[in-house]
Design a protein around this nucleic acid. Sequence first.
DNA 1: GTGGTCTAGACCACT
DNA 2: GTGGTCTAGACCACA
Lengths: 124, 124, 124, 124
Amino acid sequence: MQIQWDDSQPIYLQLRDRVQNMILEGNLAEGEALPSVRTVSAEYQLNPITVSKAYQLLVDDQLAEKKRGLGMFVVDGAKDKLLQQEREVFLTTELPALLRKLKRLNITREELLDALDKEELDNG
Amino acid sequence: MQIQWDDSQPIYLQLRDRVQNMILEGNLAEGEALPSVRTVSAEYQLNPITVSKAYQLLVDDQLAEKKRGLGMFVVDGAKDKLLQQEREVFLTTELPALLRKLKRLNITREELLDALDKEELDNG
Amino acid sequence: MQIQWDDSQPIYLQLRDRVQNMILEGNLAEGEALPSVRTVSAEYQLNPITVSKAYQLLVDDQLAEKKRGLGMFVVDGAKDKLLQQEREVFLTTELPALLRKLKRLNITREELLDALDKEELDNG
Amino acid sequence: MQIQWDDSQPIYLQLRDRVQNMILEGNLAEGEALPSVRTVSAEYQLNPITVSKAYQLLVDDQLAEKKRGLGMFVVDGAKDKLLQQEREVFLTTELPALLRKLKRLNITREELLDALDKEELDNG
DNA sequence: GTGGTCTAGACCACT
DNA sequence: GTGGTCTAGACCACA
């Protein structure tokens, strides 16, 4: 079970994103323990510190909490928090950027929707 | 006259993007000379090497060309080339990512269009 | 009945402090038995070893004593001992630190007294 | 030039506190560059990562900023920010705790002021 | 020159 | 068992 790491981004950020995705997709329930630092570091052949760094980011974002001597746990409400955070960023930052790009590239709204349709068909 | 550099991206890439935008928006016509490395580095308090690096990327992408002793110039067809390049990247990389994100965030097509409308009004 | 544990300090120290406070406030009289390790560990969902560790600290400080087969008891004179210990620490360690901090933050003696007054009113 | 590290606290936190104190005392002016990670790590025989960790905390608190390739710099307004932060914490957290302790230890306001006077004399 | 990242290996405190 | 911290040493991107 080997991960394909994307070399353009630090591993600890990719790890954090993976956990966030697991929470969003429900593979990691609220209140559930994150896989231990040691487990993850062994499984993916990573330095424990690298894993710790990813987990610490989750704690900083109040998505996970430490219980001393027991491990890290997904906090209650983490999923909603994530959804809201991402929507926020998307609507206030990414979407405006998208629109500017559409204008600059002279892509009409119709082309955009067509492309979305096509994508939807491809991915079922 | 200070630029707000985005610390999350190397300055030389931000510089390149600025020049590309100027070309796309017509502020820098084809055949026109780029501002000299020395000018830019003085104006924005940058290391000349940083500016050179940005310009070299434009040369590598065949968007600009060096004329010995005269400076750098926007090549003919640069604007179209840029448009095509960006459309390509947009349609093959960004759009699929956008769709995945929309799904994950439960943002419907209607919400997307509403947001686009709103943006359009804001930007006139 | 869940305690809010402060993650910045080991649980066994927090437990010890709680017991010490109970002694100081008279909620745990001298000669009285401490709640059993088993009781506490069940009530607060703690590892019994954690509770034992806290109790052992009290024994080490001669504030409690073990009676084989009967449990742990608050020793005679525990309250006075605690008072004296804490006064000692307060006057020799905390107070000097307080003064240094007041100076650094430019908080005058008047502001300090005002704040104390306000606190007193709040807490009745 | 060797620092006496306090073993009860991680070095990177002690380092952060040192820098904060330097800012508060004006030894490190706003806009000035922090001593480089390498310099500090060499001077105090520390791992560069340990120093980085301390500096990152300052960035997270918006007391310092990174300039890519140039180093870390004290941000404008850092000193005021620090003062305000510390006052806030002091007045809302430490002072109430102080009062509770005074009550518990039966230390009167007069004793407190006497002690403060004495301290002041000692430290000039 | 600057900071960022990672590995390997060790020791610690806590539950 | 858990996470936290540190060292030593290496490589990278950036200015």
